[in-house]
Amino acid sequence: MDRHGPAGSRKRATVVAGCVLGAVLIVLSPQFGRAEPSGRYRPPLPPDALTTGCYPLPTGLTIDFPYQVRTDEDLADGRTRRLVLQYDEIDADQARRDLAEALVRAGFTPRARGDVLDYAKPGVGQVRATITPIPRLGDDDLVRGTVELILPKVARTSDAPECLDRFSTKRFAEAEQDR
């Protein structure tokens, strides 16, 4: 005897039928093909602009502290390039020391002493770097300051996709012009 009466057994029959249908569809689902999600709602991690070699730094120059490139653009004089990056986890003095050493290792020699690092290398040209701590940081903030580099302009070395991806090259002004 069904203590829930005809309505109860009808309800149960519906539930059982639904479950059976669901199970059959699940088992058959691979036969219908595979869905293709677009994956477009997760911004990809763009390749680091300075490791792709698309717009390289002067030969031998490396950035040896943690950083992320923020913008890169050719300046109106037609000869120089302005590359802005942020340094992480270290203070401004450390960033300055590390950058000065890297410049020397790459064969650059200091031109003048002052707040701005000013170096040059025969056959390459002048490199200037201004290091500015970000104001009002908390003690735990990973991002600590900004380095503005004025470098000799370089041409794009390749038409590979990453060299045309503005989020990788950070050459937004150029991308805007190309639109």
Binding site: P66, Y67, Q68, R70, D88, E89, L142, T146, F167
Partner: peptide, 28 residues
């Protein structure tokens, strides 16, 4: 983004992209 985030993207995506870049640089 301790300054403006990358332009030409939405106010939701662009901070995530930046956070992933900082995370890569600082290994977090």
């Amino acid at each position: 983004c301790y300054g403006p985030c990358d332009p030409t993207s939405t106010i939701w995506f662009t901070p995530v992209r930046y956070a992933r870049e900082v995370a890569r640089a600082t290994d977090t």
